[in-house]
Design a protein around this nucleic acid. Sequence first.
DNA 1: TTCAATTTATATCATGTGATATATTTTACG
DNA 2: CGTAAAATATATCACATGATATAAATTGAA
Lengths: 232, 232
Amino acid sequence: MRSGPSRAVKLQPVRTAPAAGGTRKGEETRQRILDAALKVFGTAGLKGATTRQIAEEAGVALPALAYYFGGKDGLYLACAQEIVDRYGRHMLALLSGVRASLKAPMSAASARARLKEVLWALVDLQIANREADIWMSFVLREIAEQGPAFDILFKHLWAPGVDITAELIGRIVGERSTSPAAKIQALLLISSLSAFSIARPIALRYLDWPDTGDARLARIKSAIGAQVERIA
Amino acid sequence: MRSGPSRAVKLQPVRTAPAAGGTRKGEETRQRILDAALKVFGTAGLKGATTRQIAEEAGVALPALAYYFGGKDGLYLACAQEIVDRYGRHMLALLSGVRASLKAPMSAASARARLKEVLWALVDLQIANREADIWMSFVLREIAEQGPAFDILFKHLWAPGVDITAELIGRIVGERSTSPAAKIQALLLISSLSAFSIARPIALRYLDWPDTGDARLARIKSAIGAQVERIA
DNA sequence: TTCAATTTATATCATGTGATATATTTTACG
DNA sequence: CGTAAAATATATCACATGATATAAATTGAA
């Protein structure tokens, strides 16, 4: 037991990372922690994940988590924001384009083509891209728990894609405004992708596939395309 | 610090519950622990769940978990078996009947009808029955982690339903043996149900529904039925 | 009612966990 | 090069956790 200062008197202030103006190296460390946290939270959940595990995965010392993110909870929310950012980088241009074209009348055939575009982009994001396993798992847990990040994810991740899918379905079947039935169909359609994302281990085992490599991915896209063609 | 026996000399043997011949009250306690554990594991996962939380939820003392299930891990596996048992009670008769009827030639219309039966039974199991939230969450985590219960769940929970769905789809499209395309369709179709089970909070918010009560459930079933009708 | 088997309850242990204090090192700018 | 700010590292703390020891209470059959 070493004699030290009384806990009431701090010799140094509490340090947290600056909002802006940090070092290049610090920014890299921050990103490294985020990547590690996505992985660990995705595997073990908010509660099951330990700060030591995340720190080790990131190759940093434990107090870095508090320094850059304020602690475990802050890091969790930062992960949600990171997911939303990555999703945005992948989907935002396409969704904006489709949204703009929805402002004018659109033929059923055209709506079908655009819907396929959207769904295939989601396939590329969720299924073709193995990194998505990491954040899909995180998202999944947040759905189940409706934890602190649910609102962020609902607004920026789920609602946009479902909205557009529902509207395209409405156009395909000739509706003026998007009906509840089209919305339900949109939810079912987007959720069917989870066969190969969330439930991927089941699908691979069931189909006796080693992975979802190019030829198999093409079959998945073909099957999804067929679903779109069948919408009437 | 109370003086007691040296740790090398035990005054009592280690107690675990008998394989058979326990008391009625003990059996009730065992079931209560299982129910509590399904809930807590489903929310917090294997790692995040604590034995104290489960014990409190069940209204038992902490050592009861080790007494009845050998500890946390044993309890987790018992939960998986419990889920399989519940699923079996709900689906086995129907699946057996369909499987038997598949032994003979079956018209496309007949296959459609049976497929709807299967999917609606899954809806009743997963969506209409709110208790399913508890074990769906558990299952979900096991998929993501491929933990100790994955094999049990794959064999007894997932594969039977997907198998039958794939075979019925094959009959609908006139195949002699079930093609990979039919299997992929089966996986997509069954996974689409997750819109209202796993992703239920999203669906409810998106549709501005308070719940999936009777009239809304009918719409969901109708939408799923329409998906089946569209298979060609 | 008795008694062995079963079950339950309190206490304790060794280890794990999020957070924090504080010294030291590194970075970037003038 | 000097220096303030930023970042990193070691050590420590209070509390949490799975498991276990063991005493006491309950159950059910004779």
